[in-house]
Computed example of a mutant assay.
Amino acid sequence: MFTQWISAFDTGARRDIIENYLKFKQKNERRGSQIVLFTSVSLLRLMDRIMLFYNDLGLQEGFTAKVEMACFQAWLVNNTELAAEIQNSATPRPDNLTEILLITQASQYEYVERKDIFSQIMFSKSFFDYLSGNIDFKPYLTEFLACKNLKSSSQYLRALTEVYMMGAGEGFSFRLTPANQFLKSLFDSFTLPIPNEDQRRERPLKANDPDFKAFRVSPLVRIDENSYYILHHNFFVDKLYKGLLFDFFKETSIHKRFRDFPAFLQILGSEFAEKNIFYEYVSGWFGKNSYVIKVPGDRYPNIECTDFYVREGKSIFLFEFKNALVSTAVKQSMDYQTIEQEIFKKLVRNERGKPKGVTQLLKVIKDLVSKPFPFDDFVAKGSDAYIFIHC
């Protein structure tokens, strides 16, 4: 990709760029570093900046060496800024590898690897099934589908899945055919609005958004009347579940019932995510055999036995479910202490010192070692047990 990009430059410029790059690469490799030319987060930052300063200049039939050089320089500046932010947050030393990894991965983990579309499909189906079977929420599902000009939730699921699996997941673009024109309203609702000159005058320029909310809400750009381009694969896949939850809240009148989106997520976490996703799928991982004991966390409210207890023969599996969100300010803080404290607050102990996640598991393990739970006295049955924990 890099070589193809600079092919528009003259021979001298190409030679200088390649020579300088190789020197830079060799110098860093001697120090044990690895050079990555294109990262998702740096390209997203560049796209965000381009959209921020978008203009109405018409499309050119071909890009000149001058235009390509301007794009190349913008990319270099963008990468340099990102690298400087990371380096200024923590100077690499042999003893702080964990610190560097946490700082860099907290801000980039969502963009580094492709999301598993199959798990998102399962989550999406569970969510739609939950809405269909809930008397209070079903009217909002009808309202949401009407907004998208769809007759059923299966049309929503099938549209996103087919587009992704039939080519857009490998490339970036797709085109609607005459047979699926009814999906135009759906994909248009995912399309990034390009402001005209008057709108840009009314709306002052803002600093770059480190969480790329505009691309999360609108992961598509419309190329022509029936063709679309995916800005980031993960943001498109998110429309199956994570982005779906946000759209469902914002685009229906259900938002009037809750203080804000986090309040809506909190209800879903306890009433839907834990019971309809977590319980269902964990239970499905283990067979229906006489030597398998499966106990969801809500079966014995007076016994703290984690969110799901499973014994398969001599193996005990303890599952702790945490539907936790980490704010953009924390993820993008580039500060080790800030990120570490938030992780501990979500998964170890909260602000009031109440045990969460890991500490809950430790307590259950200690209780289990001293005495089995009443619902599964494996000692009385003459069995040993080996504990596996999952959080």
Rank of each mutant, 00 (worst) to 15 (best):
N208H: 03
K256S: 12
H232V: 04
L220W: 00
A214C: 13
A214M: 14
E202S: 14
L205I: 15
H233T: 11
I230T: 00
R216N: 02
S227I: 00
L240V: 11
F248D: 06
R201N: 13
D209H: 07
R201L: 15
P195A: 09
I267L: 14
F249A: 07
V237M: 07
A214D: 14
K242W: 13
I254M: 07
D224E: 03
F215D: 07
K213G: 11
E197S: 15
F248E: 08
V221G: 04
E251V: 02
R222Y: 00
A207I: 05
L205F: 09
R201D: 13
P262H: 06
F215P: 06
F212N: 08
P219L: 02
F246E: 15
N234A: 07
I267S: 05
F264D: 03
F236C: 00
N208S: 13
F258S: 00
A263S: 15
K242E: 14
P204G: 05
F235L: 10
P204N: 05
L265A: 01
D238W: 05
V221I: 12
H255F: 11
D209K: 07
D238A: 01
H255C: 13
V217I: 10
L244V: 07
V221A: 10
F248T: 09
P204T: 09
L244N: 03
K250C: 13
K213Y: 03
F248K: 04
T252I: 04
V221W: 02
K250Q: 14
R216L: 08
N208R: 14
F261I: 07
D238P: 06
G243M: 03
H255W: 05
F261C: 05
N208C: 08
D209S: 09
K250E: 15
P219K: 01
N234R: 04
D260A: 04
K239P: 09
F249N: 07
F235G: 01
L231H: 00
V221R: 10
P210H: 02
F249I: 12
E202K: 14
I230E: 02
R203N: 15
D198T: 15
L240W: 01
F249R: 11
T252C: 05
L240A: 06
L220C: 02
D247V: 11
F215V: 08
E251F: 09
H232M: 09
S253I: 08
F215I: 11
L265E: 13
F248H: 08
N226G: 06
V217N: 04
E197A: 15
H233D: 10
K206D: 11
I194D: 00
K256D: 13
S218A: 12
F246K: 15
I223A: 03
H233L: 11
F246M: 13
R257C: 10
R216D: 01
Q266R: 15
K206A: 14
Q266F: 12
L244P: 07
V237T: 12
N234T: 06
S227M: 01
S253C: 12
I254W: 10
K213S: 13
P210Q: 04
K250V: 15
F215K: 03
G243I: 09
A214L: 13
E225S: 05
I223M: 08
F246Y: 15
L205R: 14
L231I: 13
H232K: 06
L240H: 11
F212V: 07
L268G: 02
G243V: 06
L220Q: 04
F235W: 05
F264L: 05
N208A: 14
D260W: 01
F212E: 06
N208M: 10
R201I: 10
P219H: 04
L240D: 05
I230S: 00
